[in-house]
Every structure is written in C-alpha cells, then in structure tokens.
Simulated assay, not measured.
Amino acid sequence: MSMNNKQRWMGGVVLLGGGVLLAALLLKGKEEIHQNQVTPPSSAATASQQGKATPVEESVQLQPMTVDVATEKRLLEEQRRAREKAVAEQEAKAAEFLRMQQQAEAEAARKAAEEYAAANARRKAAQESSDNIPPELNVDDKTKAQLKAETDKKQQQQKQAQQKAEAEKKLAEQKRQATVDAAKKAADEKKRQAEEAQKKAEADKKAEADKKAAEDKKRKLEEQRKAEEKKVADEKKRKADEAKKKAEADKARDLLENGDKQWMVQVALAANEANADAVAAKLRAKGYKVTKSPTSKGIRIMVGPAKDRETADATRKKINSDASLGMKSAWVIDWVPLDKR
C-alpha cells in the first residue's frame, strides 16, 4: 500500500509539473502574439509622422512610401507565419507532454493493479490456510451465544413478519369478502325492488283492466236495462193505445147499435195519431166528449154523439166560435162505425 501511495504521489507531481509547463508555454506564446500585434502600428505611425514632417517633399517621397508599405506587408506576413509556427510548436510540446503524462499515469495504474493483485493473492492464500482450522476452534462460547441470539432474533423477526403478512392478508380477504357480500346484498336488494316494482306494475295494470272491464260490463248492463225498460214501456204504451182505441170503437159501436140515431160534430181530420191526440186533448180540456175514428185519409176527431141534429149543430157553432180552440171548420155528420156500414 505504501508503494502504491508513493506512485500516486509521483504521478501527481508529474501532472502538476506538466500543467505548469503548459501554462508557461501558452503564456509565452500569448505575449509574443501581443508584441507582434503592437509593433506594426508603431512603424506605421512613424511613417505617418515622417510624412507630416516633410509636406514639401510629398511628391518626391511617394514612390519610396509605396515600397515601404509592401515591405511592411511582407514583414507582417513573416511575423504571422512565425507566430503560427511558434503556436504550432507550443501545441506540439503540449501534446507531447500530455502523451508523456498519460504514459506515466498508465504505468502507475499498471503497477497499482499488479500490487493489488499480489495483495489479493496473499490474502486468498492466508484465507485458505485458515479454512483448514475447525470452526469450533475459532469460535468461543460467547461468539456462539451471540450467533445463536442473532439467529433466534432473525427467526423471530421472520416469524413476526410472516404472521403480520398473514394477518394483513386475512384482513384484506375479509375486507374483500365484505365488499363482495355488500355488493351482492345491494344487487339482491335492487333485484327485489325491481321485481316488486314489476309485480306492482302488473297488479296495477290488471286492476285497471279489471276496473275497465267492470265499467264496460256495468255500462252494457245499464244500456241493456234501459233498452228493456224502453221496450217494456213501448209495449205497455202500445197495449194501452190499442186498449184505448178498442174501448172508443166499442163505445161508438154501442152508441150506434143500442141507441137512437147518433149525430156527431167532426172537428178535424188528423194526419197521424199524435196530431189527433193533441186536438182531442184541447177538446177534452173544454169539457167535450171526443171520439176518434181512423179512416183511409187520416184519423177523424169528433165531438158527440148528440140525440138530434139541432143539438149537434149547436155544439158545432159553439166550437167554431171558441177562438181558443181555433177550429172554425167543424161540421155535423151522421156517423156510423166502419164495421156497421
């Protein structure tokens, strides 16, 4: 290790010296370049001063000044080339120095690697020689106790870690199962509510249909009842009208057959039964005895009978003169029923 440190120290010294030399070369080249840049303007200034000092000989010195400018350009070009050459030489020296420095570093690294390999070989040999000694000779009771305690501690830690992992796994499984159960319960509740809603909708629909059917049935029964009542009423009215007509006919026949000759006052000839009933109602309201008799031209409305023509004619005049009746065309007839003619 001491040899390796010495080599490293030498390498550092070499690097430091090379850096100083490189800096000196660069500084020297920079000063030369600066000096060469400053010199030409001074010569140009001198020439300018000379030109100003002899204004009278300006035309005579024109040709020599042209030659001096060309010479100055040549000198400047030579100086530029010299500077470039000096810079190139300095760069070459710096490159050579860097190459030497790299070689020194490589040599130092090689030697250090060789020393490190030799040290590893020695350490390995020493380890191999110590491996032949039985372990029980190298480890005392205290060390054994420490090793056992450390082993027990590691086993206990592993056991605790395993128990903790199992507990966390069990807790995670319980949480997952609880989540699954909650989701299943929510799904079942949602399904139950949907089924109840569907059943309620079906029940409402059925109840509405039953209600409508009951209303239709009730309406039909009511219509049927009204139709039957109307039919019964019409039949009753028809029978009453027939009985009334028959009674009037029988009465008129009885008057003609059993009494003396009968005289009637014909008031009007109605086109239908309704008109005949209206006229008869007016006459009955005045206290007249009315008889109706159907003919081929209509229904004959008559008042009477009277025992003689004079009585019938008096009745005719009375009816014609009654403005409330509006019957001014009544006349007296000798009436005989159709079945007796």
Rank of each mutant, 00 (worst) to 15 (best):
V139A: 04
E31C: 00
E105T: 05
R225Q: 13
Q102Y: 12
T54M: 06
A145L: 13
R341M: 11
E228G: 06
A227W: 04
V336L: 09
A240E: 14
A108T: 11
R219G: 05
T143C: 11
A249I: 09
D210H: 10
P294F: 03
S48W: 08
P135E: 09
R284P: 00
R80Y: 14
T66Y: 11
E58M: 07
D260H: 06
V290D: 07
I299T: 12
K170N: 14
R81Q: 15
V267G: 03
Q61F: 03
E78L: 10
K212P: 03
D313S: 09
A23Q: 01
A271P: 11
K153S: 15
K226I: 03
L27N: 00
K148Y: 05
L325F: 03
Q37F: 07
A95W: 14
K185H: 02
Q146T: 14
L283P: 05
Q63G: 05
K185T: 04
V303T: 04
E229W: 06
A314T: 02
R300N: 15
E72T: 09
R300F: 10
E105D: 06
A233N: 10
V180I: 09
A121D: 15
A47H: 08
S43C: 03
Y288F: 12
S59G: 02
A281R: 07
A165E: 11
R83A: 01
R176N: 01
K6Y: 13
A23Y: 09
E229T: 07
R219T: 12
L27D: 00
A145N: 05
L221E: 15
Q79Y: 05
Q163S: 06
E166K: 10
V38Y: 06
A249N: 05
L283E: 01
T291F: 03
E248M: 11
L25G: 14
K236S: 04
R253S: 09
E115Y: 04
K226C: 00
D141S: 13
A145Y: 04
R110F: 05
D68M: 11
A178H: 04
S321G: 02
A183P: 01
E31W: 00
R238V: 02
K184Y: 08
E115M: 08
A247P: 00
K244R: 11
G259V: 08
P134L: 01
V20K: 00
T295S: 15
V180Q: 15
L171H: 15
E215M: 10
K200T: 10
D188Y: 01
N120K: 15
T291R: 01
V56T: 04
A44W: 09
E128A: 07
D254Y: 10
L76E: 14
Q61K: 06
V20H: 08
E242L: 10
A108Q: 10
A197N: 12
G19P: 07
E189W: 08
Q49Y: 13
H34M: 00
A106W: 02
K317R: 05
E235S: 03
Q162P: 00
A197S: 13
T66V: 07
D68C: 06
P40T: 15
N258G: 00
R219A: 15
A270I: 10
K52W: 02
Q7P: 02
A145W: 11
T291Q: 12
I319F: 00
L62I: 07
V20P: 00
S293Y: 12
S293N: 12
Q224V: 01
E150H: 08
